[in-house]
Nucleic acid binder design. Structure first.
Length: 423
RNA sequence: GGAGAGGUGGAUGAGUGGCUGAAAUCAGUAGUUUGCUAAACUGCCGUACGGGUUAAACUGUACCAAGGGUUCGAAUCCCUUCCUCUCCGCCA
C-alpha cells in the first residue's frame, strides 16, 4: 500500500509513475489527499473536544473526593454537552478513514525508475539469454506425451478426484517432485536462507497484508466456513511472519525459504499454453523471501536474480531473464524479473520464476518496521522470488533430457534421485 | 466438540473504576567508575495519528488480545469474537 504522505509530497511524480503501471484512475491521487486533509481536520477538533472531556472527568473525580457533589453535577452536565458533539465527529471520522483506506488500497505499487514502459508481455525487455538449447532426437515429444508414456503424472485421475488442473503424480513422477523440492531447498539454505514450513491456509489479515486481497480475491480458493484462504504462494504465510513487528537493524537481512503447494483458481485461463503441466490449479513451489533495509533492496534484488540464475544453470536448462514492463508487472511489485526456461519439445519459453522487489508496499501494509542506526523507526523492504516453481521445471527437464530410450537427469539431481536417469 | 482458567509494554509480572501509558525485575541503550573475558552505579528505554519546530524540545488523542456496551471517568464492570493453557471427548 502506498502512503498518503508520499502522495502529498510527490503528487505529480506519483501520477506519472502510476501511469507507467497503466493505472487508470489518476484522479484518485488528488481524492486521497483531499480525504486525508479532511481526516486531519476532523481529528483536530475531535482531539480538542475529547481533551476537554478528559480534563473535566479528572476534575469530577477530585470534586467527588472532596464531597462537592453540586459542582461535580454541574460539570457532568457540561461534559454531556461536549459528548453530544463528539459522537457525530466520531462517525464522520470513521467514514472518512474508511473511504481514505478504500482509496489507498486501489493504488498499485509505483514502478522502479528502471522499469521499462510498456503494456503487454511483448514489451518486456530481454536481459539475458543463456544455456544451450538441446538437439532432441527426431521422435521427441512434449511432456504431456512423455508423462503418459512413462506413467509419471495422471491428469485424468486427478480430475476424477478433484477437478481439472489437479495433477496426480505417480511413482517416479511423484519422487521427482520430492527430489526437486529438496534440491531447491538445499540450494537455498546453502546460500543462507532459513527454511520454513508454513501453514498452507491463511486468514484474511495475512492475505491482505501481502496484497492478495483485495486485488486477487477471485484467484484464491476460499474456505468459507472458517474464512481461510488456500495460499497461492508461500510468500503469503512466510512474509506475514513479520507482520506487526519492529526489527532491530542487526536482524536484517532476513532470508527465508519455504516449500509449499500453491493453489490458484486461474479463472479465465485457457488454450494451448495451459496444456499439461504448464498451468495447473495446484502446484509445488519453493520460494525465497528477504526482508532488508530500504537502501539495500536494489542490491539484494540483483543478488536474488543471480541466485536463481545459478540454480537454473546447475540444472543445465536454457533460460532467459526478462525485465517486466510497467503493464505486465504485478500489483504490489516495484520491479520484477521473470525467468523462463526453454522447453525444446514445445518450442516455447516457460516462466519458472518471478523475482520482485516490493519495496515498502507490503511492509507498510504489514507494519513491518525496523530501527535504523539513528534509532528511527522506518519500513523495511520485502523481496521474493520463486526458487523454483516445480511443474514447469519438471516439464522442461523431462522434455529437454528425453532420449530415445528414456529420460536422463541433470548431474546435480542424480545423487538426490539415486539414479542417472529418471526413467 | 464439552468443562474450567487465562490473554497487560521486548520478556517475566503487579495492578479489580479516577492519583496507571501503566509498578517492579530482567533484557536493551548511553554514561561514570573500578580495571582483566566482567561487576557496580546513574540516566534513557512502546506504538500510531494530529499540533508544533529548520530539526528537536514541547504538546493533544488513541491503544493493556479484537470489536461493541455501561459510566462524568474503564486495563479494571458487561456482551461478542479470536487465541492460549488444563481436564474430558475424538483423532493422523
Amino acid at each position: 500500500m502506498l502512503q498518503v504522505n508520499f502522495l502529498r509530497q510527490n503528487r505529480e511524480l506519483a501520477k506519472a509513475k502510476l501511469a507507467i503501471k497503466h493505472f487508470g484512475q489518476l484522479e484518485l491521487v488528488d481524492a486521497a489527499i483531499a480525504l486525508d486533509d479532511e481526516r486531519k481536520q476532523l481529528q483536530a477538533s475531535f482531539d480538542d473536544t475529547q481533551s476537554k472531556v478528559n480534563a473535566a472527568s479528572k476534575e469530577i473525580g477530585g470534586l467527588m473526593a472532596k464531597g462537592e457533589k453540586d459542582k461535580a453535577e454541574a460539570l457532568k452536565n457540561e461534559v454531556a454537552e461536549w459528548k453530544k458533539q463528539l459522537d457525530p465527529l466520531k462517525v464522520k471520522m470513521a467514514e472518512v478513514e474508511t473511504s481514505l483506506h478504500n482509496t489507498m488500497v486501489q493504488f498499485p505499487n509505483l514502478p522502479h525508475d528502471i522499469v521499462p514502459v510498456g503494456k503487454s508481455p511483448e514489451e518486456n525487455v530481454l536481459v539475458k539469454e543463456a544455456g544451450a538449447k538441446p538437439n532432441l532426437h527426431k521422435d521427441a515429444v512434449p511432456h504431456w506425451d512423455l508423462i503418459k508414456k512413462y506413467n509419471l503424472v495422471d491428469f485424468e485421475t486427478g480430475a476424477k478426484i478433484t477437478g481439472s488442473g489437479f495433477p496426480l503424480y505417480i511413482g517416479k513422477g511423484a519422487k521427482f517432485q520430492r527430489v526437486l523440492a529438496q534440491y531447491f531447498l538445499d540450494f537455498n539454505t546453502a546460500a543462507g536462507y532459513t527454511e520454513y514450513l508454513p501453514p498452507f491456509m491463511v486468514n484474511e489479515t495475512s492475505a491482505f497484508a501481502t496484497g492478495q486481497l483485495p486485488d486477487k480475491e477471485g484467484q484464491m480458493y476460499h474456505a468459507t466456513a472458517d474464512n481461510f484462504y488456500l495460499i497461492p504462494t508461500a510468500e503469503v504465510p512466510v512474509t506475514n511472519i513479520f507482520r506487526d513487528t519492529i526489527l532491530k537493524e542487526s536482524d536484517l537481512p532476513i532470508k527465508m525459504t519455504a516449500y509449499s503447494p500453491c493453489f490458484r483458481r486461474e479463472a479465465g485461463s485457457f488454450g494451448k499454453e495451459v496444456r499439461g503441466l504448464n498451468r495447473v490449479h495446484q502446484f509445488e513451489k519453493v520460494e525465497i523471501i528477504q526482508i532488508v533495509p530500504p537502501e539495500k533492496s536494489d542490491d539484494v534484488l540483483n543478488e536474488m536474480v543471480t541466485h536463481v540464475e545459478n540454480l537454473l544453470i546447475s540444472l543445465g536448462l536454457p533460460y532467459r531473464i526478462l525485465k517486466l514492463c510497467g503493464g505486465d508487472m504485478g500489483f504490489a511489485s516495484a520491479i520484477t524479473y521473470d525467468f523462463e526456461v526453454y522447453s525444446a519439445a514445445q518450442q516455447m519459453w516457460l516462466e519458472v520464476s518471478s523475482v520482485s522487489n516490493f519495496q515498502a508496499y507490503q511492509t507498510y501494509r504489514m507494519k513491518c518496521r525496523y530501527k535504523d542506526a539513528e534509532g528511527k523507526t522506518q519500513f523495511t523492504h520485502s523481496l521474493n522470488g520463486s526458487s523454483l516453481a516445480l511443474p514447469r521445471i519438471f516439464a522442461a527437464i523431462v522434455e529437454n533430457y528425453q532420449t530415445e530410450t528414456g529420460i536422463a537427469l541433470p548431474k546435480v539431481l542424480q545423487p538426490y534421485f539415486g539414479a542417472e536417469n529418471l526413467v
